[in-house]
Amino acid sequence: MPDLGPAEWFTWAEEQGWGDGLPTVAPTEDLVEAMLAGLAGGVPDDVPELGPLPPSRLVPGLRAIAANAVMAGCRPVDLPVVLAALQGLQHEAYNLHGSLATTHPCAPMVLVSGPARGRLGMNSGVNCFGQGTRANAVVGRAVSLTLLNIGGARPGTMDRSTQGSPAKYTFCFAENTDDSPWEPFSVRRGFAADDSVVTVMAAEPPHNINDHGSTTGEEILTTVAGTMAQSGSNNVYVRGPHLLVLGPEHAATLHRDGWTVEAIRHHLWERARIPLDRVSESNHRQFADWGIKPDGDAYTVSTGPDQLHVLVAGGPGKHSAWIPSFGSTEAVSVRVPGG
């Protein structure tokens, strides 16, 4: 094709149906080759072989994934994290096809733990879910573009999300272990501290938990539990995982008061309950059809405390975040190829 400037390329790519609506970088052969050459020592032995991506059922090759990474604005150092995320998405428990085709607004959340955070310059602190950091922005976007361009999950055709969400453009952040009083999330999931790990989950965007008033860990958890107990959440009847991302200040208060992660999970399991009178009669029947019965005078929010995942991210301030999921998914953790 003739050489195109950035604006002409954007228009041309749009006409091909390539992209997410935002400008992309043209995946020229030289940029794609440079992306692939950036994999440490060539292609590491532990780069996963990916299976077919739904809904197109096409098996993505490294070159096509690298092309999407270029389009997203990735640097070569970002590619192994993108590959790990795509591997995680293909785990059966993630339910990629269902999460792409659903009317629910879930997006492929990418959480990064371990040394890759520093290598990529990821933001795990102030505004970690928001704009402003290249690695966070482009890694999540490369994953989404791959699902769009190769997987064929196009809005309105195979992506049937009723409203979608901004997280479908990109949803990637890093764990803040420097300000966490507990073991890193990835270590608690069985990985070594020097492993770089990606955790993916079909997730709603973060829901803020504002608590400036509470002064004890138990009070903070009262607010968290109240935020999680939403009658309109998929997790009420589809079940599945939740992610609680504590801001460092909330985490510090909890730790000061002796709360362990396991204690938090069990406490929230008992307290995040939806009173029966907050659920409509028709939904009581709908939940029953799914085999969900109230526990006493309230509904639980999943199947047990093991589905309530807890970690720390963010900067100063009295905010945390609840990330509910599609329900029919799991938090899947994968080691980044090349370490």
């Binding site: 096509a64 690298a66 092309a67």
Partner: peptide, 15 residues
């Protein structure tokens, strides 16, 4: 310029 097709994938043999 030469572009790498970002939609390329290999079809699988279906059951």
């Amino acid at each position: 310029m030469r572009i790498v097709d970002p939609t390329f994938g290999t079809p699988v043999e279906e059951d």
